[in-house]
Nucleic acid binder design. Structure first.
Length: 634
RNA sequence: GCCUCUAUAGCUCAGCGGCAGAGCACCUCACUUGUAAUGAGGAAACGAGGGUUCAACUCCCUCUAGAGGCUCCA
């Protein structure tokens, strides 16, 4: 078959699939589908619209979803145009979970959704065809000239011929492709309305962004809604409240208050962090939480980061300004410089778990995941140039050991040189090469974020997905950064084998992002079913009647002195009730004590999945729990 | 910081321009129970400050806090 793409003819075997074509021409699959409209049938999961004979991908394919939702965005825009003629259309792309469309000069809230949805359904039921039209730039400008956003698009990126799609009385600039007709959209749901900046630039116009999702059947929508409900169960803020782990208070917005149970989890993770750091050759240091702002002026952060710092003046205004530290970096230099260092001292690994304060903007706070106060399991490693790679490998060894304890799906990114940066091109080249090299050697899948590095060096970040696997809700948990800046700024030197002074390179790393964030991520991933070693209460003892109270107390004492985190519930409510409470608190082991147990001096152990074992020896149980706690097995 | 929304009891949620409602949790009493909610009774709330009104929890404004986005970010 013959395919015309970009003005040139390409010859393909008759049975070529769009995937083959996309690969050969090195273009996105969806463009092939668009091109294919004029080409004729190709063997792929597909549907053909019986009226238009247009072939399109089914909703089941990822590309098909994108096409479907993109078309839905057009339907939304068409509905808005009818209901709010004064609104200006801008852009409306498909996204991972649906689509959005940005409007200028539109003021709606979610209470308007029912009306908009109704209008969309009207368009859907009208069975409007998506008709592709072509125009020259001049023709397009005459059509969209009154819309400055469309004019900007036409000026900036659209290459002639300009393509437009018409749906009924609605015409929009669009590359396509689209589904043949609106009638394939069987279920419509608008999700949320949000403000967004034109071109993502917070100095440009604020647009009204409406998010929505559509499906080819009502049933798909129902499934989606069920999934959303399930997702809600994984919300760490909810879980934190229900399991009595942490609170938030207007007394200190953005700073979590860990309750006794939450503090147990917190400290268990700190313990893990310390054990790992010890194993991998780190020394822990403890440094001030507040210091003269001078420090950040030297480091360069003051210039860039001042707005996010908690700055304080002591009693006399003339005194130097102080600031709560937003990062630990500069303090490790004081430790390094406390004596003359030799190349034999390197790598020097200094771990610092200091409390950090960053005045994050109000709208960005998010439970434990984004806070104003947090504690990183942070470290700074001073290395010579030829130690950089092996040291980063070692950091990843540590990371893998920690992450193997959790069922995480990590996403890795390599962030490269930003526009505003310090250090030589040569340093950046070498730094980025080393990071790339490490990623390749470890066979990690990663994406490159061009220009996203720190001003002082490139970095690798690791994000963890929540249980729905949606990348937009991923938070960075791990980071490793190469820093060309710190040692220079603070005049840090070591003596090399040549008996001359050299400037070390500093590596920054954080394994858990912050302890609090890590807890949040774990809660989202487990829905609160923490592994026994991390559970604030590992076992709860329930009595069936008051007759068993004294034996239950004996068991409690025994487990407690064995170091197990145990609770006793000998209240006089029913067993069913107590079981339910224990289950709701997600306690790994529920121990039931009745007459039979007291008589035989055993316990009955119910695990979280509802399975119960009777006649267990309490000593054996204690031993088992202690072992799983120490080895951190599931 | 920007956009939209929200704020009623410890929690989840009703409600209305004219006396504040429920379920769970809590307290008391009864019940003494074998693997996900025993029954009865009781105590407990309209985020803060202005304004409109005879009257505001309800309408308007400001503030504070929260949710979801945007911009940021461990």
């Amino acid at each position: 078959m013959e395919i015309i793409y970009d003005g040139r003819k390409h010859e393909f075997p008759e049975k070529s699939t769009p995937i083959d074509i996309a690969k050969k021409l090195d273009i996105p699959l969806k463009d092939v589908v668009a091109a294919k409209i004029d080409v004729g049938p190709i063997d792929l999961k597909r549907e053909i619209d019986h009226d238009t004979k247009i072939e399109f991908l089914t909703f089941k394919d990822k590309e098909g979803k994108q096409v479907f939702w993109h078309s839905s965005a057009h339907v939304l825009a068409a509905a808005i145009k009818r209901l709010y003629p004064e609104a200006l259309m801008t852009l409306g792309p498909p996204i991972d979970g649906g689509f959005y469309y940005d409007f200028y000069n539109l003021n709606v809230g979610d209470n308007d959704f029912p009306d908009i949805e109704k209008e969309m359904k009207r368009i859907v039921e009208a069975d409007e065809k998506f008709v592709r039209k072509e125009a020259t730039r001049e023709e397009a400008l005459s059509i969209f000239g009154s819309n400055k956003f469309k004019v900007e698009i036409l000026g900036a990126e659209a290459k002639p011929p300009i393509t437009m799609y018409e749906t009924g009385d609605f015409l929009d600039l669009c590359r396509g492709p689209h589904i043949p007709s609106t009638r394939y959209i069987k279920a419509v749901k608008l999700l949320k309305v949000a403000g967004a900046y034109w071109r993502g630039d917070n100095k440009r116009e604020v647009l009204t962004r409406i998010y929505g999702i559509t499906f080819p059947s009502k049933q798909d929508l129902d499934e989606y809604m069920a999934m959303e409900t399930e997702r809600n169960k994984h919300d760490h803020k909810r879980i934190g409240k229900e399991l009595e782990l942490f609170e938030t208070s207007p007394l200190s917005p953005g700073s979590p208050f860990f309750l006794p149970k939450g503090a147990v989890v917190y400290n268990e993770l700190l313990k893990l962090a310390r054990e790992m750091d010890r194993k991998y050759g780190y020394d822990e240091i403890v440094t001030p939480i507040i210091a003269k702002s001078e420090v950040w002026k030297i480091s360069g952060h003051y210039e860039k980061y001042r707005e996010n710092m908690y700055r304080v003046s002591p009693f006399n205004a003339e005194e130097d300004e102080y600031a709560l530290k937003p990062m630990n970096c500069p303090f490790s230099t004081v430790i390094f410089k406390s004596k003359t260092r030799s190349y034999r001292d390197l790598p020097l690994r200094l771990a610092d778990y200091g409390m950090l304060h960053r005045y994050e903007l109000e709208g960005t706070l998010d439970g434990l995941l984004r806070t104003r106060l947090f504690e990183q399991n942070d470290a700074h490693i001073y290395v010579t140039e030829d130690q950089v790679e092996s040291e980063i490998m070692r950091i990843f060894d540590l990371m893998e050991e920690v992450y193997s304890l959790f069922k995480f799906t990590p996403i890795m990114t390599l962030a490269t040189r930003p526009e505003q940066r310090i250090g030589t091109e040569d340093e950046w080249n070498r730094g980025e090469d080393i990071l790339k090299n490490v990623l390749e050697k470890r066979k990690y899948k990663y994406t490159v974020k061009e220009g996203d590095g720190a001003f002082y060096g490139p970095k690798i970040d690791v994000y963890v997905l929540d249980f729905t696997g949606r990348p937009e809700s991923a938070y960075a948990v791990f980071t490793v950064q190469i820093d060309f800046n710190l040692a220079v700024r603070f005049d840090v030197k070591y003596v090399g084998p040549d008996n001359k002074e050299h400037t070390p390179i500093v590596l920054h790393r954080a394994v858990m992002g912050s302890i609090g964030r890590f807890i949040g991520i774990i809660l989202e991933n487990t829905a609160g079913d923490l592994p026994a070693w991390l559970s604030p209460v590992q076992a709860r003892i329930l009595t069936i009647t008051e007759r068993s109270s004294s034996y239950a107390k004996e068991i409690f004492d025994e487990l407690f002195s064995a170091g197990i985190r145990v609770e006793l519930d000998d209240s006089n409510s029913t067993l069913d009730y107590k079981i339910r409470q224990s289950q709701l608190m997600k306690i790994p082991y529920t121990i039931v004590i009745g007459d039979k147990e007291a008589e035989k001096r055993t316990i009955a152990v119910r695990s979280r999945d509802g399975k119960t074992k009777y006649g267990i020896d309490p000593k054996e149980f204690a031993k088992e729990v202690k072992k799983t706690t120490e080895t951190r097995s599931q």
